[in-house]
């Protein structure tokens, strides 16, 4: 029997009961079960060659010398001052932007869901958030330069109206806080999109039950709502963190290679081997996989936990 024949007569059609009279009893069922895997082959090959093998290549390279012998030297070299400083800067920036995004997003989402505002306000913000969370990278950098760059509209307006120079006061778009403010433009809408369903899931019965037991407004939030929401909030925070950690285009368009976050360092390493050791580059990538990967996977775990409350 050929593969084509087998595909034409799938087990779902008849199962063993119908295939038995066809002539090959017994041996047939297990053989068919094996053929079913062939249907996964195109996907499996694509995923292996263009997703899994490239990652495996980098990860194994991180544990090898350029000559190919096993070593921990690359990982130890990650703790050198330049690379460690770069990781620390990345982590700080991602933490700050995730905290800002999560707090602002939670507030906005609370206002939209429970604030008693007209329904269309919520619809407008959700739709806008869908667009804004995808409006990132280079155009976003351009928009912020036109707004609060040195000659940006808002910078100039504030100077002319109030005689106040925000750059003179220490603000700089091309610095840590400037980047954090820019990241907020995609972090805030992302937070709104993912936390709103969780706030929707707070049942009015819970609040009524709490109130009938004599709980105050604050007690309800502290002892009922926040504990229910906390896996979602933590999960969203981790997603925002990973999101900021992997951001490259926005930083690159704003600051070129000046602002040495890990993706920028890796970018420079791929372009010109600035670390003078290809295997150290692999170790740098491994560090990114671990940090971004762990926070994303934790997010997925927390999300499935949070979904229990919405059954």
């Amino acid at each position: 029997m050929t593969v084509a024949d087998d595909l034409l007569n799938p087990p779902s059609q008849g199962g063993s009961a119908r295939s038995a009279p066809a002539g090959l009893p017994g041996a047939k069922a297990p053989r068919r079960a094996n053929w079913a895997w062939l249907g996964l082959l195109p996907f499996a090959l694509f995923a292996a060659f263009f997703l899994i093998l490239p990652i495996v290549y980098l990860v194994t390279g991180a544990f090898q010398t350029p000559e190919g012998t096993f070593t921990f030297d690359n990982l130890i070299a990650l703790t050198g001052p330049a690379i460690l400083g770069s990781y620390w800067l990345s982590i700080k920036l991602s933490l700050v932007s995730a905290l800002l995004g999560a707090a602002a997003g939670l507030l906005l989402s609370w206002a939209l869901v429970l604030g008693g505002l007209p329904r269309w306000v919520r619809g407008a913000f959700i739709t806008f958030s869908g667009v804004a969370s995808n409006f990132a990278g280079i155009p976003l950098a351009f928009a912020f330069i036109a707004t609060i760059g040195r000659l940006g509209i808002v910078t100039v307006l504030v100077r002319e109206l109030f005689g106040f120079n925000i750059y003179g006061a220490g603000f700089n778009l091309f610095s840590f806080w400037g980047l954090a403010l820019t990241y907020l433009y995609f972090q805030l809408p992302l937070m709104v999109l993912i936390i709103t369903p969780a706030l929707d899931g707070l049942k009015t019965e819970w609040r009524e039950a709490a109130e009938s037991l004599g709980a105050s407004h604050a007690q309800y939030w502290r002892m009922v709502a926040l504990p229910v929401l906390s896996p979602s909030i933590l999960g969203c925070f981790l997603l925002l963190f990973a999101n900021a950690f992997g951001t490259l285009a926005t930083v690159y368009a704003l600051t070129g290679s000046q602002f040495d976050v890990v993706p920028i360092m890796l970018f420079a390493q791929i372009r010109g081997n600035v670390l003078y050791n290809p295997n150290l580059g692999y170790a740098l990538a491994l560090g990114m996989i671990l940090i971004a990967g762990l926070s994303n996977v934790l997010y997925l775990v927390l999300r499935s936990r949070a979904e229990r409350w919405r059954a």
Partner: peptide, 23 residues
């Protein structure tokens, strides 16, 4: 299958393209 399709979101894109360039 679902987890594999999520990998491009879990792993930063620069790491994936780095892997391509070497492999």
């Amino acid at each position: 299958v679902e987890f594999i399709t999520l990998l491009p979101l879990i792993i930063p894109p620069i790491v994936i393209v780095f892997g391509y360039l070497r492999l």
